[in-house]
Design a protein around this nucleic acid. Structure first.
Ligand code: MN
Ligand code: MN
Ligand code: ZN
Ligand code: ZN
Lengths: 144, 144
DNA sequence: TACTAGTGGATAATAATTATCAACCAGGAG
DNA sequence: CTCCTGGTTGATAATTATTATCCACTAGTA
């Protein structure tokens, strides 16, 4: 939980202008444990900042994400992806091209039970993210 | 990989009418390893079934999902959810109300490397799914 | 205080998904 | 095999989430 001065430092270090709106979005999100959506943040924020725009919340979250100050839960894929394999297995997701590969590894099938008070688990899934073989190769080309 | 007769059995067992479209969507999805989107399936299918509608693909995937014959990769959440905690941690997602709770458990932070040829991993996340304390309680009420 | 590149607000546009509804068909009765 | 009927399909409108646009405005600097 970063305080206001640490936030100022981060913006200064990355040479990103710090606006009231950006600070407000970040502080609102920091103060919450419920992993809110952009819409949910907007609803809370507009009480204190009636002129704030929903579009600004989206743009700000994207900025904060690029700065590494905010994470997106789940996949960044805009559209749902389906699988005819319903047996337990896991996935390697390419962050460059969106490719999703299957991972069958029994060592991932049994994990320590989630330590969340009262939570009744029914299963789990592991997502590795990174670069698929093709994109890794392409990326290596570019850096060379 | 279920054959056509096994599919018929499953539909009969669950008393869900088996239509040509449902069979076609299921067989197309079964034959693919790329975790396609509804749109991608539709594009493939309309070559053989020119009258097929995209809406039917969506409805069929939902039906197959409810029957347990199809899985959705990633979260079922329609909208993106954000987190100010960027340090490695994991989540317990309630399938009933969408609540997302944090899980801090170092045992989940290091997992066996993904066995995908050429994949260059940069990280991973574990999602447990199940019922949160509140929904588990509500569900227990109903069954009583 | 003044300058200016970048940002914010308002809103239009786009993309994904869901709802609507009349015509049609799967599956069971006769 | 034919008929009946409720559930399904196809066409399309509506909705929802997100992104793009564009001009006025402000943060950061001098
Ligand atoms: Mn899979
Ligand atoms: Mn979290
Ligand atoms: Zn890739
Ligand atoms: Zn819940």
């Amino acid at each position: 939980m970063k305080n206001r001065d640490e936030v100022r430092e981060l913006f200064k270090a990355k040479k990103v202008p710090l606006t009231h709106q950006r600070l407000a979005v970040y502080e609102e999100l920091s103060g919450r444990k419920d992993h809110p959506s952009a819409e949910a943040l907007y609803e809370s924020l507009k009480k204190d900042y009636p002129s704030l725009s929903l579009a600004t919340v989206y743009k700000t979250l994207q900025t904060l994400h690029e700065m590494g100050m905010v994470a997106r839960v789940d996949s960044p894929a805009a559209q749902a992806r389906y699988d005819a394999i319903v047996e337990t297995h896991h996935h390697a997701v390419c962050t460059a091209c969106g490719r999703i590969e299957d991972l069958f590894d029994p060592r991932l099938d049994t994990l320590p039970a989630p330590k969340a008070e009262g939570f009744v688990p029914s299963g789990h899934s592991v997502h590795f993210h990174g670069l698929c073989a093709r994109c890794a190769k392409a990326s290596a080309q570019k850096t060379r």
